[in-house]
Amino acid sequence: MNNSAARANILQRLRKETPPGLPLSGEGRSCTLVADASCSSPDKGRLGGVSSFDWDKAERVRRFTERMQAVRAEIHHADRHNWLEVLVEICQAKGLNNLLLSPNTAWGQTITAQAERFPSLRHYDQPIDDWKEEMFYGIDAAFTATRGGIAETGTLILWPDAEEPRQMSLVPPIHIAVLETDQLYTTFAAAVQKQGWVETGLPTNALLVSGPSKSADIEQTLAYGVHGPKELVVILV
């Protein structure tokens, strides 16, 4: 394959001058052709930065909860003192045989310290290739922290890393996530800006998760639990 030739040809065609004298109609010629600051992005200031609206924390929590529940996510309101109790109850209510978590996050340490109150704790302590079968067929639920949330859309922000890898929030049938309400932003744009995503540099895989997996591919009828988690449980702290 002549990849470099393809590259050169494509770029050359894109750089060719547009043929003159073509009849024009409709809108947008100057906009599509010219990177004119006045028309190329009339609202650039806003969309790059802070949203035009902002809710206070109570409203953010309210909206987040409402949106999440609308897509059948389970929301639990907790605080710094009782979140562990809430998690214990969730595990019991769901009859979990095991729970996948990182023992090294602050949350994970707290849980691990009271391991006897939980179902069997499983750690993602080796590359997936060494225990893929168990991950796919043996894990009931995974617990992860989150990087934040978005109130407007009812969304969790996840930046999986070596401690809490990508498959934790994807493969097990239940994903339990903890979200600190002071990391709950009004909009996606606000989260990106205030958390400095571009300045920090994006991770291998950043994710927005807004509910359990679902599909409407058959008769536009919603069905939950297609390929990702069948249940999403969020503990708001």
Binding site: I128, T155, D161, P165, L208, S210, G228
Partner: peptide, 23 residues
């Protein structure tokens, strides 16, 4: 689809990095 957002928005910026356990 008239959804405020889809369930997943997946932003991929690199392959598995050293030390990462999946991907």
């Amino acid at each position: 689809t008239g959804q405020p957002i889809t369930t997943y928005f997946n932003m991929i910026s690199s392959p598995r990095k050293p030390g990462e356990k999946d991907g």
